[in-house]
Design a binder for these strands. Structure first.
Length: 870
RNA sequence: GGGCGUAUAACUCAGCGGUAGAGUGCUACCUUCACACGGUAGAAGUCCCAGGUUCGAAUCCUGGUACGCCCA
């Protein structure tokens, strides 16, 4: 049996145990165990990633739940994995290339792709190592990567079958183009930002020479691609213009004036220019009204040949030139300052360009309806529930999803075009020859799929789908999903849609949306603000267990977490407290006392058993309901207040001189606490378990705490006896003695004689003497008041200290009078309410009884104070 | 423009129909034989504002104010 250090050495413990757990295969699923399965899949971190606070939180919560469920006796499986993160990863490697003075085009596609794979092989281990550092009890034998061949097979199957069912199609559509990354994006990858800009008013003369129209625009350069001017059909001001044509300045083209209700009559002049090739609204209007579409801006964000004299200019340069020319030729009416929203790439930050482009799209309306229904009818339950409202709104207004990306890094689109006849083939495997013309030269679509396409399949692709594996049957649907609400649409909704479509069932039964981790003052962490707290540094400084516990105790559903050094310190101190309490137990029990030593219980034991029973019930309920903070908070107080402050102090006497049976009780209590705390602070508890419990376990009990059961069913918790009210009374009396000493300025170490009128506390005399450091405690029903004593009122009686010569009688009297006034003030509303008929008759009996109890207790004190005052 | 969330002690947050709590900080004291990463005692709050429901509201409802987020 080892001697424990004075302080918990977390640095050693948190690096040691993970290997032991892995070697024991403690976290591997046990499909053949006959246990009920419980499963969860990790939100796969990007391979580019470093563990940040968001990861630390989400994975801590995963681990708490998984360890809890494992302990409860489930076949708990947490599937780990990483995401290839198309854009993010490619950007990172491209940046490296740039630093080396080359780029992906010079390298060529194949070499570039190999380069990213190399990078991935080198870096994937980092994030996995960090998950281990955090203690995540994942099943590494089932580790997945979103580009694994089996996951690729799933992707191809979904693509091909969706295509054949008509839900995936290719076509020219207006998409958001990122000129910096040179790829299309989906609507979700667009961020809108308010910018101060200008509103230019342009004059377009009527072709017949009679009059003009003035249009307002924030993007004057696009006028080169105008193919109409539009007014609202009911706008009385412009009825006479409809059907006529105007001469488009700088180009000499004649374009019609059309009517369409998309025009906002209150914007600008109420006349708008229509550029179907470069604006989403105009594109839709162009389709409706069958207008021409002229592309004057290319994918490189430079003007095209169609822009005539402006061809080759950058879009922002072209704007300056067009405005200057319009002004010179008298077509510029005025310029106003104007604040408008611009769309930016969520990835590169570049100003996006709405462009018509040939891309692949997925029609998700049918799947969206299924996902919507699943939440409405409760097959998927959200915590917090309010996210369901956002879910509903988004899914009912969902647009087709642009799934193709002009990137190298990702799942290649399984579509081939025949070089000879142009025939399109969408197949699982590369066709050997064109089905139409027989030509053997087939060119695969160069594009890859949106990263989220493979993420959507994650809850079943990780289990081997489309193969009908045993894992798939056993672990799908997963039990719970834990993730951030920021990816509700990106990921959660798409998994729901994919699961319902391909598996015919929800991918998870419950979703818990974790909080956002912010800094100490509630600010979002960001590198630019410099307020990022790095979990790896925290683990070094405060310990992994402290980090986990701090995150858990702050993880109240629906509110953000303000992470601060103060919180981390509190958690570290908590860990140390548990360590020292355990050390105390270890020091006081010789090796012959084990968990098989039959314990006997006294008042203190029955009281603590009652506390453990109540709290473990509440903790279990809290974990089932994702109230991690509630569970952690209860454990915190159970350890500090009940176990350490109260029980250990009371047990000290018997630990020194008691019987083996008396001493055995505390071992059981510590054992229960360790098992309950293990999901939150696994390294600390495993370390203590080894030091204190490992050699005292009953035969057949797992020697690793990670494998032991959730303690709620422990036989000891069913023991009942004693008077539950005694301990709180003892605490109050003890506190009163200490307060009297402090009030009277008595040195805490000076032993004085004490008196107590609560005769039932006599069994606690030794404890009171030891803790309050008293010379003696006399239990008596006689009047305690005396000129040489300081007295205090407690529930049901009074206590006193003998202070001959030390005491100021006037101050003592003033104190009691103050107490009297306070009690009168407290009693006033209580008496009033109890005298109130409507309260007594209408309020529930329990509420009245409780109030009556409170009133009686105070009346008693009042009487006691009066008696002491004489 | 629509939707959602949050306003509680100096700070960060729990509580969400029975009369206010935690952590940190603050004040005073204590190195008592598990722990100073400790202990004891204490100070500190018109629970954003205004109405309403109720025997009773920090808690439920309505309206307002402030801040944050999401969608257009």
């Amino acid at each position: 049996m080892r001697e424990m250090d004075k302080a918990f050495d977390f640095r050693t413990a948190q690096t040691r145990w993970y290997e032991v757990w892995e070697a024991a295969r403690a976290f591997e699923a046990a499909p053949d165990s006959g246990k009920e399965p419980w499963s969860i899949v990790i939100p796969p971190p990007n391979i580019t990633g470093n563990l940040h606070m968001g990861h630390a939180l989400v994975n801590t919560l995963h681990d708490v739940l998984t360890r809890f469920k494992r302990a409860q006796g489930y076949d708990a499986l947490w599937v780990p994995g990483t995401d290839h993160a198309g854009i993010a990863t490619q950007m990172m490697v491209e940046r490296q290339l740039k630093a080396e003075g080359t780029d992906r085009h010079k390298l060529g596609r194949d070499a570039f792709e190999r380069r990213i794979w190399d990078w991935k092989e080198k870096n994937q281990g980092a994030i996995e190592h960090q998950l281990k550092r955090l203690g995540c009890s994942v099943d590494w034998t089932r580790n997945r990567f979103t580009l694994d061949p089996s996951l690729n097979k799933a992707v191809r199957k979904v693509f091909v079958e969706s295509y054949k069912a008509g839900r995936i199609y290719r076509g020219p559509r207006m998409i958001q183009w990122d000129p910096a990354l040179q790829t299309a994006l989906s609507d979700l990858e667009v961020k809108y930002e308010e910018r101060r800009g200008k509103l230019w008013y342009l004059r377009y003369p009527m072709s017949d020479g009679h009059g003009e129209v003035v249009v307002a625009t924030t993007r004057p350069e696009t006028m080169l691609g105008d193919t109409a001017v539009a007014v609202h059909p009911e706008d009385a001001r412009y009825q006479h213009l409809i059907g006529r044509t105007v001469d488009l300045p700088l180009t000499g083209r004649k374009i019609p004036v059309v009517a369409d209700s998309f025009v906002d009559p209150t914007f600008g002049t109420g006349c708008v220019k229509v550029t179907p090739a470069h604006d989403p609204n105009d594109f839709a209007a162009g389709q409706r009204l069958k207008l021409d579409s002229i592309t004057i801006l290319g994918f490189d964000a430079k003007m095209t040949a169609a822009a005539g004299a402006y061809a080759g200019l950058d879009r922002f340069e072209a704007r300056k030139r067009v405005v200057a020319d319009l002004e010179a030729q008298g077509f510029l009416v005025k310029v106003e300052d104007y604040v408008h929203k611009i769309s930016l790439s969520d990835r590169s930050g570049a100003v996006l360009e709405p462009l018509v482009s040939e891309q692949w799209f997925m029609d998700v309306k049918e799947a969206a309806a299924k996902a919507l229904a699943a939440v409405q009818d409760g097959r998927i339950a959200f915590t917090p529930e309010h996210h369901a409202a956002v879910w509903q709104h988004w899914l009912t207004n969902i647009q087709d999803w642009c799934i193709s990306r002009q990137l190298v890094w990702g799942h290649r689109i399984p579509a081939w075009t025949c070089a000879a006849c142009g025939g399109l083939h969408v197949e699982m495997e590369a066709p050997s020859a064109c089905g139409a013309c027989g030509d053997k030269k087939l060119i695969q679509d160069p594009d890859t799929l949106d990263t989220w396409f493979s993420s959507a399949l994650w809850p079943f692709s990780v289990f081997g789908w489309p193969d009908e594996t045993a894992d798939l049957k056993r672990y799908y649907p997963t039990s719970v999903l834990i993730t951030g609400y920021d990816i509700l649409f990106f990921w959660v909704a798409r998994m729901a849609m994919a699961g319902l479509t391909w598996m015919g069932d929800v991918p998870f039964r419950k979703v818990y949306f974790n909080s956002l981790v912010r800094d100490a003052s509630g600010q979002k962490m960001s590198k630019t603000k410099g307020n990022v707290i790095d979990p790896l540094e925290v683990m070094e400084e405060y310990g992994t267990d402290a980090l986990r516990f701090a995150l858990a105790i702050m993880a109240a559903p629906g509110t953000d977490i303000a992470m601060s050094p103060a919180r981390l310190e509190a958690s570290r101190n908590f860990c140390n407290k548990l360590w020292n309490a355990s050390r105390f137990v270890q020091m006081n029990l010789d090796a012959s006392i084990t968990l098989e030593t039959e314990p006997v219980f006294g008042e203190a034991e029955y009281w603590l058993i009652g506390r453990l029973r109540d709290e473990l019930g509440a903790i279990t309920d809290a974990l089932e309901a994702f109230r991690f903070h509630d569970a952690a908070d209860r454990l915190y107080h159970l350890v500090y207040d009940d176990f350490c402050a109260t029980y250990i102090e009371l047990a000290k006497v018997q630990l020194q001189s008691g019987t083996q049976a008396q001493k055995a009780a505390i071992l059981h209590f510590l054992d229960i606490l360790l098992r309950a705390l293990h999901p939150f602070v696994p390294f600390l508890t495993e370390e203590i378990h080894e030091d204190v419990m490992a050699e005292r376990l009953p035969a057949g009990e797992p020697t690793l705490l990670a494998l032991r059961s959730w303690p709620i069913g422990e036989w000891i918790l069913r023991a009942r006896g004693g008077d539950a009210a005694l301990i709180p009374r003892f605490q109050e009396v003890l506190s009163a003695f200490l307060r009297l000493k402090a009030e009277q300025g008595v040195d805490p170490a000076k032993r004085v004689a004490a008196f107590c009128s609560l005769l039932e506390l006599e069994p606690f005399a030794e404890a009171l003497k030891a803790i309050a450091r008293l010379e003696s405690v006399t239990f008596t029903s006689a009047d305690l008041a005396s000129p040489t004593r300081a007295v205090a009122v407690v529930a049901g009686g009074a206590v006193a200290l003998e202070l001959a010569g030390l005491k100021d009688p006037a101050a003592e009297k003033a104190k009691l009078e103050k107490e009297l006034a306070k009690l009168e003030k407290e009693l006033e509303p209580l008496r009033a309410r109890l005298a109130d008929d409507s309260f007594v008759t209408k309020a529930p009996e329990a509420a009245v009884a409780k109030l009556r109890g409170q009133a009686e207790e105070r009346e008693q004190r009042l009487a006691q104070v009066k008696a002491l005052l004489g």
